[in-house]
């Protein structure tokens, strides 16, 4: 009986049955019918005592139990079992690797279009880098907008807005890149946000695709400057 904690509290006999029915509480010692101590245990470990006055049907006092400084045989066995349990779970630590499947953008030289196909002040949405897998190629994170500026120059940017990753588009009538969600506006010459919430962020420049134009007038994409989805560095 040395492990039993005992405190004198008043417990009315009427409510005594309710204690036994309660799953969390177990009655440990009963001196005589009105006084009872209840051990409170959590996951099988002694964590404290709750003194219950069942007549009032509420807890009166709660305090930690005074444990014996000597480690009892029972405690030693329990801690060994706990150690074993920890060791059994340790091999599952790299479970985070299962949850994260990272992307690799294979930088490749890829033909997008020919100069002749794209009139002045217009745009073309293209996939880069193309993988051949339709699921992957339909990914908005792999979509870019090729813009032919009114001055004839070519520029290509990611369509993922720097603010909340909505999808931006080049609007020919206003000659600017606009985000339909929260109204971020980008300058098509530089890809820098000029108005709206994206302009207030530390990183204001849309990721840009490096373009190459050969003698036949074919436009090629070759590499990306910047990270698609600002703040997504972790999954690059």
């Amino acid at each position: 009986m040395k492990d039993i904690y005992f405190y004198n509290i008043y417990l009315y006999h009427k409510g005594f049955r309710d204690v036994k029915n309660n799953l969390f509480l177990s009655v440990y010692s009963l001196k005589y019918s009105f006084k009872v101590a209840i051990k409170y245990s959590l996951f099988g470990f002694k964590t404290g005592l709750i003194l219950v006055d069942l007549h009032e049907s509420r807890c009166l006092i709660k305090f930690r139990c005074k444990t014996d400084m000597k480690i009892s045989r029972r405690d030693a066995l329990k801690s060994l079992a706990a150690l074993s349990g920890t060791l059994a779970l340790t091999p599952f630590l790299p479970i985070g690797d299962f949850l994260i499947q990272s992307t690799t953008f294979n930088i490749q030289r890829q033909r997008i279009a020919n100069i002749k196909d794209i009139p002045f002040n217009s745009r073309l949405i293209f996939t880069y880098p193309i993988t051949g897998n339709t699921e992957r190629d339909n990914d908005p994170f792999r979509k870019f907008v090729l813009i032919r500026l009114p001055n004839g120059q070519f520029k290509a940017y990611s369509t993922v807005c720097l603010h909340l990753w909505c999808l931006v588009d080049y609007k020919t009538e206003r000659q600017q890149i606009e985000c339909p969600c929260h109204g971020s506006i980008y300058d098509p010459n530089t890809g820098i946000a000029i108005r709206g919430p994206a302009a207030l962020q530390p990183n204001k420049t849309l990721p840009e695709v490096k373009l190459e134009i050969d003698e036949k007038g074919d436009i090629y994409a070759n590499g990306i400057i910047g990270v698609i989805g600002y703040g997504k560095e972790g999954s690059k």
């Binding site: 985070g96 949850l99 994260i100 499947q101 990272s102 992307t103 699921e135 992957r136 339909n138 990914d139 908005p140 994170f141 792999r142 703040g231 997504k232 560095e233 972790g234 999954s235």
Partner: peptide
């Protein structure tokens, strides 16, 4: 945040 987002995103939008 970065960790949680990469759990959500995986290898792209289809994930």
């Amino acid at each position: 945040g970065q960790f949680l987002a990469s759990i959500l995103i995986g290898s792209g939008f289809s994930d």
